[in-house]
Each structure stands twice: as C-alpha cells, then as structure tokens.
Design a binder for these strands. Structure first.
Lengths: 132, 132
DNA sequence: TGAACATTTGAGCAGTTATTCAAATGAGGT
DNA sequence: ACCTCATTTGAATAACTGCTCAAATGTTCA
C-alpha cells in the first residue's frame, strides 16, 4: 500500500531541470491549464487500495449485515483466522470497522456506513460493465 | 493485480476435509446463514484495483474534463510517456477509455462515465474521513 | 527512402502485498 | 495455577505491481 508516487522530476538537480520548457510540447495550452489544478487523487487512490482486495471487501460486506467475531468471519470466507485478523487491523486503522471484547471473543462491526455506498457503486459498475 | 483468492480448503484432500464440522465453532447459525450467499465480490475488488493507483485515477480525472494525447497526459502528471502508455493499456482493456489516431498522435478520451461516480464517491469519502 | 516525432511494447528491477506459520497475548473455566 | 480457546502479532515467503529503459512500431513530411 504505497502512499506516495515519486515524480521523476524530484530526483533531477535544479540546474538540469530547465528543460521544463520541453514539457509543453504537444498542446501547451492544455498542459498549462492543468498546472497545480489536480485535486489530491493520492488519497482517492489510497481509499480504493483499501477496498482493492476481495477478503477485505468481503469482510466489510459481512459486517454491513451483522456483527461477527474473527473466527466466524474466517470460517465464512474460508480462510485463516490469522489472515482475517491481519486484514481487520488494516480496516481498523482506516476506522472502517470497530470492535469490542465479549468474553474470549472479539466482535467486529462496521464503523463507517459510507464505504457501503462505495461498494454498492462498484457493484453497479460491474453489472454495468457486464452488459456491454 | 490478482484475480482469484485461494481457499486453503481446496488443497486439502477430501478424506481430511471432514473436519468441516469444526468450521461451525463460534456461531453455527451465523456461519450457516452465509453459506453460498456471498455475492461476486471478486469482481468488485477487481474494479477497485483498477482505481487503486494515483496515476490511473489522475488519467481518468483528466480525461473526464477533456480528451488528451499521451504526451500531454505524461507532461501534466509529471511522469514518463511510457508509463502513461502502460496504464492506458490497462484502462483500455477495462473499456474505461477509448482512443483515436490523429496524425502522429493518439487522442484518448473517457469511455465510461460511470467510473466518475465511483471516483467522486471516493472523494466524498476522503473528506468524510478527514473530519473525524 | 529516410529522418523526426508519438506511441507502444517487452524485459528487468525494486518495492509492496497477501498469505501462511509459529509464537505471544488475553480471557474464562476448573 | 493451569489448561483451553480466541485473537493478535511478527517473520518469512511467494506473487504481484508500477516504473524505467531500450527497442520496435506507426505516422508524417521532406
């Protein structure tokens, strides 16, 4: 899960970076128009990265319907408890899920209803793509 | 970009798989309820995977506003033409962008308005997360 | 035809990611 | 205190991803 994308320009010493003029080759106007106007798409991509894993989307989908313990999630998804726990840690860090202890078990539930909108939209997108 | 997640159960010989009863440990009812009821979240995750890269979301964002040649995209994003071309190939395979030749140049444009909904939702999600 | 430019392609590399295993932690029951 | 069960954690590994470079393809123009 990379956080920053490195622009090759950053590694070039300033003295050599005067080929900036070359940057405006094809359509100077179009290129100039976008100077510094790009929104923070890094964060957007990061959001998608969290959802770009079947195990994680499945966990979120399950928790959207009912709260579950780690063991149940692992059993339902047909994977290891350890594996699920690792993914839950990531989802917890993103504050997408919350948890509470109940005896020996830890019960997880959804902590962000809004991601469901995102998942549902992706669902629609898949169907939308299939009929093409 | 992985397509399938492997269930460990698949590698276990049938004779040993009779510990299936153990699968229903914590909440048999909850686990049973989900048997075969999970929607195709693999496709959903795959959709997110395409968008889980800053360069690609940036390309889509740019093309949502105007059509551009490869060189311009590369210049605006501050990366290599080659790199952009690789990403465009992926987006083309997903039918998210289309292209036409114009002289020596190849002009790319958006071919799927619906992904913008997804990107916009992700934007909202980011803002929604920031104020917590 | 050949030079110049725009784009594509393939190979290789470095960094990242998902999964597994083994060991550690925590909590309840005897 | 000990044993058992549920979960967490860390290390190790195999697979994947994005980027770069060099070479190939395609197109225009002289």
């Amino acid at each position: 899960m990379t956080t920053d994308m490195k622009s090759p320009k950053d590694q070039i010493p300033v003295s050599m970076a005067d080929d900036i003029c070359d940057e405006f080759r094809c359509s100077p106007d179009k290129v100039a128009h976008w100077q510094g106007k790009l929104p923070p798409l890094k964060d957007v991509a990061a959001t998608f990265k969290v959802l770009a894993d079947e195990t994680r989307t499945s966990i979120l989908y399950l928790l959207a319907h009912e709260e579950l313990c780690v063991c149940d999630i692992a059993t339902i998804l047909g994977t290891t408890v350890s594996n699920v726990s690792h993914h839950l840690r990531l989802l917890r860090a993103q504050r997408l899920v919350k948890y509470r202890r109940e005896g020996k078990m830890v019960i997880y539930s959804l902590d962000d209803e809004h991601v469901l909108t995102l998942i549902n939209q992706a669902f629609i997108h898949v169907q939308h793509q299939d009929q093409r």
